[in-house]
Design a protein around this nucleic acid. Structure first.
Length: 583
DNA sequence: GCCGTTTTCGGCCCGACTGTTTTCAGTCG
């Protein structure tokens, strides 16, 4: 059993424990362990076999035994017992907004409700409102929750959520009452998948009502979920949830920090604050209850910025992208936080399309757009012949395009167009171009565009075989996730990254808004394995080139420095890099 | 169930909002 499956089972065990009314801290221990397993980049089986599993943070004797059992036998007795004790449908009910373990438990015990369908029937029949602790409003909210659960996954890709959040933020910022404001939450942390949009702003107390009114009546708002003086929640068009929090300007740095998260980072920060004798919340530091017992209380510190909060806890400022409690606090304490790659470091990109295949714009238009971004080069990667659905080029058209690029290069000053291809990886792992054609490019991107339904083992073998090919430069859209609603094809990315490290190949971060598919943990793993990670927008239009910014966000989240991203290098250095990968 | 800068017990982050209460529990982030 692989780590994602193990993590999912631990997660489920946490929920089952909550549904049983077990000690909530016990349930939390399972959630924490799930997160730890999920974040492992080493082969879980190896970690289990060597016995190092029990050394992992948040995994003790009991959970180590469960994980070991899961990895070696594919099942866990304890999990099976929990499953037998709690109807599976209750787990699904927890996904409904406003429905937690306590309510689910009551509904099961009093009304024998065992799942979402039962719940809907009971609510429609008005049977929920008769229960103690429930009422007419709860019943209506539950019905609404069921509807939105069924119509949307409740999660968006980063680019869509960021666009919606920026639109709402921009109109709030136009109000003169607003002092400081920012998108917080997972958008600020640049997660590839976003649960909701969080906005934090500061204003004087007597201005809050007017700002809150502007927020809940914003044109993008479809429904107001909750409305208070300092906090409101709405549903934006497109099923994107959005929260606004208003604080005083003095509280602002604390609120921004708090609502940026992650939850795990916050918990670690609060624990650290307690060691200083302080309690940390979204409003500031205060003397911890029983502070004298926990440690000697120090003088309160006023903080004008997030950096001041970290400084007060004797930490370097942690960039939002790193706040996952994945080693960033230790690095901040030691002063070893990385200098992350920035958008301004990008000097070109390697995977975009022109009207030779399925792109919209001409070669010249794409080059002009790249120059307008201040770039120094552009790599073209139109589709190979087998990609008929995407206007794949014939060998003759490749020759035409190469000559076209030569002519263009001769006319350009201080700008280089690289000849590339996005070559299909055939189901066998062979490439869609013969070596003779591959040799005519400066570099080769390879991608899977067919036979998505292979087993994980076969897909992994297929990709690794293709990656090994001498003319291959980099792997394109590595997990193949096209849309959030459609799962990625199954592939063991840890093995693929290991292979890329062995063969000296690169793996792209595909920054296309619908295809932001390289998880930050894998990006970080690639860096640890010294695999170079170019950021490619997979642009099909001139506008699409600017999508590299989404990739930069994920790169930063994966702890990438400038040197880890080859498209921060000069054209001459890139030319050398391509040549060295080939030799 | 996990953990340890007063360690093998006794904590485990903390506050807003909602809906149901008449002082609070549940949920969420």
């Amino acid at each position: 059993m692989n780590k994602n499956a193990v993590a999912a089972i631990l997660e489920e065990m946490g929920s089952l424990l909550e549904l049983q009314g077990a000690n909530p801290f016990k349930a939390r221990a399972f959630y924490t362990a799930a997160r730890t397993i999920e974040g492992l980049t080493r082969d879980l089986q190896g970690v289990v076999e060597s016995g190092e599993i029990a050394d992992q943070k948040g995994i003790g004797k009991s959970i180590a035994a469960i994980v070991t059992e899961l990895v070696t036998t594919g099942r866990s007795r304890e999990h099976a017992e929990l499953r037998a004790a709690v109807p599976g449908g209750l787990l699904e009910m927890l996904k409904i907004q406003g429905m937690g373990p306590k309510k689910a438990k009551i509904l099961y015990e009093k009304l024998q409700i065992k799942g979402v369908d039962d719940l809907e029937k009971a609510a429609r029949a008005g049977r929920l409102a008769t229960l103690e602790g429930f009422g007419q409003k709860s019943q209506e909210n539950i019905l609404r929750g069921i509807e939105s659960y069924r119509t949307s996954s409740g999660r968006s890709l980063y680019p869509a959520a960021a666009e919606a959040g920026e639109a709402v933020l921009a109109s709030l910022r136009s109000l003169k009452e607003v002092q400081r404001s920012e998108l917080a939450g997972s958008i600020r942390r640049k997660k590839e998948v976003i649960g909701d949009v969080d906005i934090v702003l500061s204003a004087r107390d007597n201005h809050r009502a007017r700002i809150m009114e502007a927020f809940v009546t914003h044109p993008r708002v479809e429904r107001v979920v909750a409305r208070g003086e300092t906090k409101s929640s709405v549903m934006l068009a497109g099923g994107i949830a959005c929260d606004l929090r208003i604080v005083t300007d003095e509280e602002y740095p604390f609120a921004l920090h708090y609502f940026t998260g992650s939850k795990e980072h916050n918990v670690a920060m609060r624990s650290r604050a307690l060691r200083f004798g302080w309690s940390l919340n979204e409003y500031g530091f205060s003397k911890a209850a029983g502070g004298e017992k926990r440690g000697k209380a120090r003088r309160m510190v006023r903080c004008a910025s997030e950096a001041d909060i970290y400084a007060a806890l004797e930490l370097a400022f942690v960039p939002p992208e790193l706040r996952e409690n994945a080693g960033e606090l230790e690095a901040a304490e030691e002063g070893t936080l990385p200098e992350l790659v920035e958008e301004k470091d990008i000097r070109g990109t390697f995977h975009c399309h022109t009207d030779y295949s399925d792109g919209v714009n001409t070669l010249e238009e794409m080059v002009q757009a790249a120059r307008a971004l201040g770039w120094r080069y552009l790599g073209i990667g139109d589709h190979s012949k087998g990609a008929a659905y995407a206007g794949g080029l014939s060998a003759e058209r490749v020759r035409d395009q190469c000559r076209h690029i030569d002519r263009l290069n001769a006319s350009l000053k201080d700008f280089t167009v690289f000849k590339g291809t996005e070559c299909d990886i055939l189901p066998s792992g062979e490439l869609d171009w013969p070596d003779r054609v591959l040799a005519s490019f400066d570099y080769v991107v390879i991608s899977v565009h067919s036979s998505f339904k292979m087993s994980e083992a076969d897909m992994t073998r297929r990709i690794i075989r293709a990656l090994k090919h001498r003319y291959v430069t980099m792997l394109g859209h590595p997990t193949g996730r096209l849309l959030l609603s459609r799962e990625a094809y199954p592939v063991d990315m840890v093995k693929v990254i290991d292979a890329a490290a062995d063969y000296g190949k690169m793996i792209e971060i595909n920054a296309h808004p619908m295809r932001l598919d390289l998880d930050w943990r894998l990006v970080r793993y690639a860096r640890e394995k010294k695999v170079l990670v170019p950021i490619n927008p997979d642009a099909h239009t001139t506008d699409g080139l600017a999508d590299v910014r989404h990739g930069v966000g994920i790169a930063r989240k994966g702890w990438l420095r400038k040197g880890d991203v080859p498209n921060t290098r000069s054209a001459a250095e890139v030319t050398k890099l391509f040549a060295s990968i080939r030799s």
